[in-house]
Each structure stands twice: as structure tokens, then as C-alpha cells.
Write a protein that binds this DNA or RNA. Structure first.
Lengths: 223, 223
DNA sequence: GAAAATCATTTAGGACTCCTTATCATTATG
DNA sequence: CATAATGATAAGGAGTCCTAAATGATTTTC
């Protein structure tokens, strides 16, 4: 079982990390190229995309979501305000805070951003649908781990959602269930940013997670 | 077969891309945090790591590998030279070019960089070994696609190497073969940066690739 | 209910990243 | 040999990203 290759070279996890780093490099490069066409930097484009999906946000929320410090976020937002793509208003509930939202031209700019750089899309679509579904599941796992570790803020994803019922159906194609829309779905449908997300409490979330990881519905089934 | 979820929301490839983007975000954030401890920026750390693995390089080679422009690479190298971590020498063969190499303190700094940020390593190691092997295979595919498209320079990876013989063994655990070390290996052993890499010519590379993608050794076996 | 602590954000300042365009040397090429 | 093409750098500008130190606004505490 063990081969020559198991004992030499870098450990598997490190090689996987190296591969992810290369993908990340391409994404960063693409982000510059794509944003440049619209006169936007990667960070600015990210802010726009974030606001498009989430509506008005605090500065601190933007900083958290993008894993940057508040001053950096403030810089980026100021640049966008200069370009009249966002506007700042004092928040009603907490008048220390500001609510940042897209202007009409910001909405337009953000929608133009949706188009993905072809190179990366091609690389993803080169994988079979099954592989893509599997990859999505693995990414979900990794992101969940990062979230639990506190490396990124809570994501609005199926894992961690109150409505998520992993591996409750016998159909191998669509084993999961979403209680919100009351429908079965599969790994290929897993979401990383769902508008209907509601955080589950810790105990449920942890139980769900175990259920998601190991599809063996041993005890449950016998009842 | 088709469910409600297939018709609403973003397409699978886009969600996968979104997941990769989140991972990329974490990596960038970690790169700042890790480099900061050594007084290095992410780009500088990348240059150091690259030189550690590859020895002396031209400036243009560094720029290509990191997917940045020559001026940017020049900036980063100049910053490293100021810190006495690299040295520049005119190349012997082409006196327009410079050969950039690590100084003793550069070697030391580069080896300190090897330690990965725990958060991401944990996220990868949270996947089962089988999943990691599968992920590595998918990353290999994606990187190969990017390489064929010209988005990144030729990588010194198994896919594309003269010594690679994909799916020639019946053993499901180690189906591939490396003619250089003359040993069987599996997906979990795939390399993205191998010192023994030698580029295969286009025809062989393409044939290998098809063989790698579809493990059905139909015709070959009957001979 | 005024002083103190806390919070959300901004300023200030510095090192770099990244780009485009332009300028040198040096090889190639016709 | 004169005209490309190439490898690297300079100049210049917008922006990223950080830490540390202000501002205001809002709670807390005595």
C-alpha cells in the first residue's frame, strides 16, 4: 500500500495548499485585469459585489467580510465614493456607524462585474459536473472549518443554517433537504451565500455537521 | 432528477468560483499576517519561496511565475535587495539580464517561511486523505487548463511531464507511473512542482492528458 | 447626571503593490 | 550594419494594507 512516493517529497496537505495558492494567484491576477477595464481595483470590485448581494452595510461589516482592517476598508469606500459609486449615510439605529450603499451608477457598475474572467471559468467547467459538485462540497467543508476557527466571519451557507437537513433522503442524487423551500437537494446545490440563511444554534449546527460529514444514517434509519 | 434547485440561484461553476474566491481571500490575509512577522509583504515572501525552490532566476522569470508585470517584480526584488535577502548579478550569457539569487540571510528567511499558517492547513487537513487526493487531482486539472490557456506559465507538474504515464496500472490505489523514478503512484502523490520535471512534447502531452482524464484503458489493454 | 470607558470610524504616515508608458542597454534579424 | 526585438529599470499615479493615534457618539459607572 505504501509506495516510494509516500515517503519522499512534500506532504499531501502542503501540495494541496500549493495548488490552491496557484489558483489564488490566477484569481488575483484576473481581478486586476477585470477591474482595470472598469477602472476598479480588486478590493473596490469586491466591495461593490458585496454590497450588491447584501444591500447597505456598515464599514466594519465590509472590513470583516473582506478580511481587511477598518482603515483599509475606509480607504476603499472613500475611493468608491469619489467615483460616485457608493454613498455613505449615518446609520439610524447607531449614529456612530455609517450605512454604505450603492448609488444607481454603483448598481450598474456592480452588475457589469458579474461576468467572470473566462480563464478561470473555463478551468472550473473543465471539471465534470460530478467533480464540480464534489469540489463544492470540499470547499464547503474547508470554509466551515475556517469559520469555526474564526478566520472568516459566519458565512450565509447551508452548513450552519437553521433550514439545513443533511443526508436525510435516500436518493443519492439529492440527499439533503432545505426546510425553508421544503425541497430535496444535492451537493451540487450547496450554497455559500444564501439569502434565506438563518444561523442555527450551536448544538444543532454541530449535529448537522456530523450528519453532513458521514452519510451513514445508521441509528436514525432504524427508528 | 432535476430539482427545484437546478433552476434557481447561481450556476454550479459560479458557486465553486465563489468558494475558491473565499479561500483565496483567506490565503491573502494569512500571507499578510505571516509575512508581517518577518517584515515581508506577500509578494516578497513569494519571491523568496520561488527562489528557494528554483535557485537563481531572471527577473522576467519571476514576473511570469508570479503573474505580475516586470516593473512590479523589479520593485519587489529591489525591496528584498535593500533588506539584503537577495543579490543581483548580471547574467553571463545575456548581459541585458540579471540573475537573482538568495543571500545567506535570504535562505534563512525563506526557510522560516515554510511554516504554513495553521488556519488554512487545518482546513485542508480537515478533509479526509481520500478527499485531499481527489482535491489535488482536481486542482491539477484546473491548473493544467490554465496552463494550456496561457494564463500561467508551464508548471513543473506531472501532467505535462515526459515521465508521466497516467492510468497504466490496475491497482486503483496507485494507477499512475513515473518513468523517471520507475515507480507506481496515485492521485495523492501528484506533484505540482517536481524537480525532475521535463516537458513532454505536445502530442504526447495531449495523449497523456486524455488518458489521465478517462481511466478507461479500453483500446490499450486489448493489444 | 457628569466623568469615564467603549465603540465605529477616520486621519496620519509609511512601505509596497500594481499598473502603464517611456528609456536604456543589449542581443537578434534582415 | 541598421533596424528590430528583448530584458530590465525609471517615472509617476492610484490604491492596498498595515499600525497607531485621533474624533465623535453612545453607554456605563460612580
Amino acid at each position: 500500500m505504501n509506495t516510494l512516493f509516500d515517503d519522499i517529497g512534500e506532504p499531501l496537505a502542503r501540495r494541496v495548499g500549493g495548488g490552491l495558492a496557484k489558483i489564488a494567484m490566477v484569481m488575483r491576477h484576473q481581478a486586476w485585469a477585470q477591474g482595470g477595464a472598469h477602472g476598479l481595483t480588486p478590493t473596490q470590485a469586491q466591495v461593490l459585489t458585496l454590497l450588491r448581494g447584501r444591500g447597505a452595510l456598515r464599514l466594519s461589516a465590509i472590513a470583516d467580510e473582506l478580511a481587511i482592517t477598518a482603515p483599509t476598508a475606509s480607504d476603499a469606500v472613500a475611493a468608491l465614493r469619489r467615483k460616485a459609486l457608493v454613498e455613505k449615510r449615518r446609520a439610524a439605529e447607531d449614529r456612530r456607524a455609517v450605512a454604505i450603499s450603492l448609488t444607481p451608477s454603483g448598481i450598474e457598475a456592480a452588475s457589469g462585474l458579474t461576468e467572470w474572467p473566462d480563464v478561470l471559468r473555463a478551468a472550473i467547467e473543465d471539471l465534470s459536473p460530478d467533480e464540480q459538485a464534489l469540489l463544492l462540497k470540499m470547499l464547503t467543508k474547508m470554509i466551515r472549518t475556517l469559520q469555526v476557527q474564526g478566520a472568516i466571519p459566519v458565512q450565509r451557507m447551508c452548513a450552519g443554517c437553521r433550514h439545513f437537513r443533511p443526508n436525510v433522503h435516500d436518493d443519492a442524487d439529492t440527499p439533503h433537504h432545505c426546510a425553508f423551500v421544503n425541497a430535496a437537494f444535492g451537493n451540487r446545490h450547496l450554497r455559500l451565500d444564501c439569502g434565506d440563511f438563518e444561523a442555527a444554534d450551536a448544538a444543532i449546527s454541530a449535529a448537522n455537521w456530523r450528519q453532513f460529514l458521514s452519510p451513514h444514517r445508521s441509528q436514525e434509519n432504524e427508528k
